[in-house]
Design a binder for these strands. Sequence first.
DNA 1: TCTTGGCACTCGTAAATACAGAGTGCTGAT
DNA 2: ATCAGCACTCTGTATTTACGAGTGCCAAGA
Lengths: 349, 349
Amino acid sequence: MINPKLSEREELVLQAVVQSYITSAEPVGSRAIVKRFSLDISPATVRNVMADLEELGFLEQLHTSSGRVPTDKGYRYYVDYLMRVQDVTLAERNRLEHQLSERLADADEILRQTSHLLALISHQTGIVESPNAQEARVKHIEIMPLQGNRVVMLLADTFGSVKTSVISMDAPLMPEHAARLGRFLNETVRGAAIDQIATVVRARTQGSADEQRLLAEQALKVMEFSPSMRHGQLFLDGATQLFEQPEFHNVEKARELFDLLDEHTRVVDLLRGGLVPSDDRRSRVVIGSEALQHGLGEISVVSAPYKIAGQTVGMVGILGPRRMPYSKLTGLVEYTAGMLGRLLTRLAG
Amino acid sequence: MINPKLSEREELVLQAVVQSYITSAEPVGSRAIVKRFSLDISPATVRNVMADLEELGFLEQLHTSSGRVPTDKGYRYYVDYLMRVQDVTLAERNRLEHQLSERLADADEILRQTSHLLALISHQTGIVESPNAQEARVKHIEIMPLQGNRVVMLLADTFGSVKTSVISMDAPLMPEHAARLGRFLNETVRGAAIDQIATVVRARTQGSADEQRLLAEQALKVMEFSPSMRHGQLFLDGATQLFEQPEFHNVEKARELFDLLDEHTRVVDLLRGGLVPSDDRRSRVVIGSEALQHGLGEISVVSAPYKIAGQTVGMVGILGPRRMPYSKLTGLVEYTAGMLGRLLTRLAG
DNA sequence: TCTTGGCACTCGTAAATACAGAGTGCTGAT
DNA sequence: ATCAGCACTCTGTATTTACGAGTGCCAAGA
């Protein structure tokens, strides 16, 4: 994609249109712009520039003689070249600090609370992805027999999060066998990546053919299927706020949106913005239909990666209508990602 | 409330109106009824009966000369006296059996899957309340130190469910202290009701004043605040399906609904139907504004209690618009509650 | 006394028409 | 290049009209 550099005046007008439209949700006309931004040029001149911008694909009219609305391309140019990232206000910063330091102990609780705060501050939907299981290492495993054939497996990882999984065995597990199995698993698997556990254990038990191998493999088989272990969780909050946005007053659109939010894999794709995790930009923006195969061209996502101990492990983001205050939200996700990283790093070890 | 017994013909007409309206979502007129149910009386007669029913408060007109629509009172009479509970079809029964026996090991997974199936079969929102913590007894507690000052507490109860809670201590916990604390807690608290743990331990540690008392109390303090321990979880599924119902094509209504679904305490109140748990009816129905102080007069809930080992411990239900196929859904929740009870009883011990 | 056919009336919906306002594109003057 | 002026286009909002579904009531019949 070539970068079609615009003239200074064109940029000025484009920026004005985008900013006006973001706050008003109404198509913006030439007169409104001159007035609102106290420009030294006449509406007629603005009209000429707007006509050019429309031909270039940055703006569009819903019908002849309505005001202009930005296209995806217009938003993109605005986000990439025109917008100035806006710092989080002091009040917002305080709010984040306070409400997040309360529940320091539980990683999941921190993630949940983060998504909640993102939603509250942005008035959009806040999204937080749990630390990627590919990066986490096993810290400790505990095995505990339950009633009947069932066993619970508790796994603590290096990111400070704790996962449990209840497994059904072929036969009841005696406490002493459980202890032995626990020791075995800890020796074998400590330090391994979470999603490599099965492979590691299988390699280790390949040679030796004692009864433990059976137990271990059985436990692992179920572990592989435990959804909370394989896929990271996704914390969403504030979805209902989107009903306030005029773009979702249409019930069709609203339904599409809520269906999307229920499909976590699609949401994660949006969050990651189709980019490789090594990409080290502080934030990214997906606009409208850019990353979506079908439907739902109406939404945008602003997201930022967060790091634990210097390593990128997940994303935080905000999802809302295409018409979003990008400059403010970009600042917000970047700041939030930074803080979340610091908090989680403190938990990790 | 007096029970205003209706004449046979009045009952016939009321039933016809309710059933017609439930399937069509349109106000129903006199001619339509005679036709649809092949009645031997004329539209004019039906009109007279309808006028009576309106005066008695069972029906209403949206405006002069539109068809009639049932009022809350009308639905109530239908549900209490006219409707015949409809059995679950064989296909639905098979579906429930199959899909629920797959994940037998994890109680939470069973509950989640149950709400999912209720939603799929009913095309409404499925709700399942986790077994009431007041009835559950502690089976086993495990304590495991994490990085830094943190400790994870794992609690298995007599209902076969497993809860974890991450706690921040004042100082790091040595493995041997953790083991001692674990033994102490198990001795003290085994068999106690989940929501009585704090009380029991406090009573036990009142006299003895060694270091363990400090540890135990500290652990408990946090445990009390752990939300997943105190309140039961609520599993909801299929909310977006409600967009298909014409009553939620209005965005205002849709928003109110989704806001309600986010407030789990209100949903639980609806589920329980304002009745005492000892009430042993097989199912209950809350219609429209009956149990709601403000707003949201548009929804109904059909629910049924489920039992573990003969004891009522929670509710399953279906939430949807007031205009619901009560006879079918009543059968569905009753059957589902029964099956869920059997499955969970098998896990418990 | 209950039932029913007939009829005038009401109300909501949909289509057709008219109108005002916002905004544009173009032209000619500076 | 810029801009004032003007004709034109399109939308949204009444307003009107027509239509149909359904009612309430009355008077006649069982």
